[in-house]
Design a protein around this nucleic acid. Structure first.
Length: 279
DNA sequence: ACCTGACCTCGTCT
DNA sequence: AAGACGAGGTCAG
């Protein structure tokens, strides 16, 4: 089955989209909302769950071809041809990236593990203990003090408020999926603690908005390094305004699957710098 | 409308 | 071994 060769599990997990995964005895164990996933070397793409999680409904080859507009992108794709974008559980994704602000991957991972451990349901798999991701209701009703114990720092109040927004229905993920990209992003940015970058992560990794391009320090660095002429980048930091300007230029250049493109560039550059991924 | 600083905490590096 | 440093941003002034 050809599809099995199209996904590199390790590269996909270690590309900064997901955090609650660990490798034990050559198997990957992961938490996706209220589900646990176990991945071995070959993906069972006939499983509906796997098919959905790995976005086998996308025409992956076509997307990569469409993105290949320049040598930098071509190179990034050829280095990681099996790296896919995942379709995550929206609430977990939402909290994950709210908690990611001004942090690094080991930190983000620790926070999410602590949140799950404290507020999520315990589950045994292969004789090992795992914790599912907490339900919105549970985090919405948790006390600030208890949430803070998970090492969230000033993000504690973000998580509390954001969870309430979901629990009360002010944020409804299936509704957001139906909106177009801009509308959905505007809605998410209403939430305290969510700016454009975090909103784009949530949209790209869990709400099927493939034109969302999260612009973080790394991506800006990449754009300055390889695309400064192409996108006429003058600024060193991303402000509200430069964010949208840049986003438009990127989508103009790469097309509607630009989000995939961001992921290839990000993965490529991070690996060059030998940054830490998941264990 | 921009721009700048502060911000919690923790893993890493000296 | 203690102390500084900075990390996939966001908010407030």
């Amino acid at each position: 089955m050809k599809d099995n060769f199209e996904t590199n599990i390790e590269d996909t997990i270690n590309s900064g989209q997901v955090f609650l995964w660990k490798k034990i005895n050559s198997k990957w164990y992961g938490i996706n909302g209220k589900k646990t996933l176990i991945l071995e070397d070959k993906l069972d793409v006939k499983s509906k769950e796997i098919h959905n999680f790995f976005r086998y409904d996308d025409d992956f080859q076509k997307i990569k071809k469409q993105l290949s507009k320049d040598n930098v992108m071509k190179k990034a794709i050829s280095n990681f041809p099996g790296m896919r974008i995942l379709r995550q559980d929206p609430f977990q994704c939402y909290i994950s990236f709210i908690v990611s602000s001004n942090s690094n991957i080991p930190n983000i991972q620790t926070r999410l593990q602590k949140l799950s451990q404290r507020f999520g349901e315990r589950k045994m798999i292969d004789g090992m203990e795992f914790f599912l991701f907490p339900k919105p209701e549970k985090l919405a009703n948790a006390s600030i003090t208890d949430i803070a114990k998970c090492g969230l720092g000033y993000r504690t109040k973000y998580v509390k408020k954001a969870s309430i927004a979901v629990d009360k229905g002010m944020i409804n993920f299936s509704s957001l999926k139906k909106l177009d990209y801009q509308e959905a992003r505007d809605s998410l940015c209403q939430v305290f603690g969510i700016g454009k970058k975090v909103a784009d992560c949530i949209l790209l990794f869990s709400l099927d908005k493939l034109e969302a391009v999260p612009l973080d320090r790394w991506v800006l660095r990449i754009l300055q390094k390889y695309y400064s002429k192409e996108f006429q980048i003058t600024t060193k930091t991303i402000t509200e305004k430069t964010y949208d300007d840049l986003h438009d230029k990127i989508v103009d250049h790469f097309g509607k699957y630009a989000g995939y493109g961001q992921q290839f560039l990000f993965k490529n550059e991070r690996d060059n710098f030998d940054k830490k991924w998941l264990g």
